[in-house]
């Protein structure tokens, strides 16, 4: 079987990876690079636990071939906190009680980050729409939505409609 040599830029760091062509970004992140903060579940882009940012946009790593990510900028949950300091979204999720089992949370936070960068004037409806591709089975999404609104206020100072 052939192998592809890929140079992947993940959380600001370049990783040289040798992988089979069929392997997805999710496979490479979890199995080759040990970045298991990106979660695995349905493998059909229905649940969103594998959400990462590709050039700043939320994507499902489970259906993205690693080869398609060559030369592009990837951010995973491991890339959010800096110097031991939680990102405002992470802090809001902790403080607003938005975390239960936590398995969906990395994907949620990354979807929320992409959305807030696009729409700093976040509304509750907008937040819910932006997170519709991330299933959570624990929370009913209410405290997650509140956490994103809280982070939006902190990050962009805007008034978020509740």
């Amino acid at each position: 079987m052939s192998r592809l040599a890929l140079s992947l830029r993940i959380n600001g760091e370049t990783h040289e990876v040798l992988t089979a062509p069929h392997r997805t970004l999710l496979d490479v992140l979890r199995d080759d690079l040990g970045l298991t903060g990106t979660k695995e579940n349905c493998l059909e882009a229905e649940c969103g636990v594998c959400t990462v940012l590709l050039d700043g946009r939320a994507v499902n790593a489970c259906i993205l071939l690693a080869a398609q990510c060559r030369g592009r900028d990837i951010v995973t949950i491991e890339g959010l906190a800096s110097g031991g300091e939680l990102h405002p979204l992470q802090r809001a999720f902790v403080e607003r009680g938005a975390v239960q089992c936590g398995y969906c949370i990395p994907g949620m936070i990354l979807s929320a980050k992409a959305y807030l960068e696009e729409c700093p004037e976040a509304s509750e409806d907008g937040i819910r729409e932006a997170l519709a591709g991330n299933l959570c089975r624990c929370t009913g999404y209410q405290k997650i939505t509140e956490a994103v609104a809280t982070a939006a206020r902190e990050l962009y100072g805007g008034r978020t409609t509740q």
């Binding site: 969103g48 590709l54 946009r57 994507v59 499902n60 979807s111 959305y115 997170l131 591709g133 991330n134």
Partner: peptide, 9 residues
């Protein structure tokens, strides 16, 4: 169509 993750690609 799908969520943002799908529509982005």
């Amino acid at each position: 169509v799908g969520g943002h993750q799908i529509r982005n690609v």
